[in-house]
Amino acid sequence: SELMNSSKLIRMLEEDGWRLVRVTGSAHHFKHPKKPGLVTVPHPKKDLPIGTVKSIQKSAGL
């Protein structure tokens, strides 16, 4: 199965306009000026399962 580095996923979010608002432990929480909701990324993780990545991307509207 495909894995993604959390840094790469965070870069994709930031390029889309998401900004880090809070860190709780290894959970990084992002908000967007125009899009609704809060997106949480486990970080640092070298090997996020593709299912997790897809669900984060979906929440972020990517």
Rank of each mutant, 00 (worst) to 15 (best):
L3C: 12
L3S: 14
L3E: 12
L3V: 13
L3Y: 09
M4T: 11
M4G: 09
N5S: 14
N5R: 06
S6K: 02
S6N: 02
S7L: 10
K8H: 14
K8C: 15
K8N: 15
L9K: 01
L9M: 10
L9Y: 02
L9T: 02
I10K: 02
R11G: 11
R11E: 14
M12G: 04
M12H: 06
L13E: 00
L13F: 01
L13A: 01
L13T: 00
E14A: 07
D16P: 00
G17H: 04
W18Q: 00
W18K: 00
R19F: 15
R19H: 09
R19D: 08
R19K: 11
L20F: 04
L20E: 05
V21T: 09
V21W: 10
R22S: 14
R22I: 12
V23C: 08
T24R: 10
T24L: 08
G25V: 11
S26T: 10
A27T: 11
A27F: 15
A27M: 13
H28G: 04
H29N: 07
F30R: 01
F30V: 01
F30H: 01
K31P: 01
K31S: 10
K31C: 11
K31E: 13
K31I: 15
H32N: 05
H32W: 00
H32I: 00
P33N: 08
P33S: 08
P33I: 06
P33M: 07
K34W: 13
K34T: 15
K34E: 13
K34P: 00
K35H: 04
K35M: 03
P36H: 09
P36T: 09
P36Q: 14
G37F: 04
G37M: 04
L38M: 12
L38K: 07
L38F: 10
V39N: 00
V39F: 01
T40A: 12
T40V: 12
T40C: 12
V41T: 02
V41G: 00
P44V: 04
P44H: 04
P44F: 04
K45P: 05
K46C: 13
K46V: 15
K46M: 13
K46A: 15
D47V: 12
D47E: 12
L48E: 01
L48N: 02
L48C: 02
P49C: 07
T52I: 15
V53C: 04
S55T: 08
S55M: 12
I56V: 07
I56A: 02
Q57W: 09
K58Y: 06
K58Q: 14
K58C: 12
S59F: 06
S59Y: 05
A60Y: 00
A60K: 01
G61C: 06
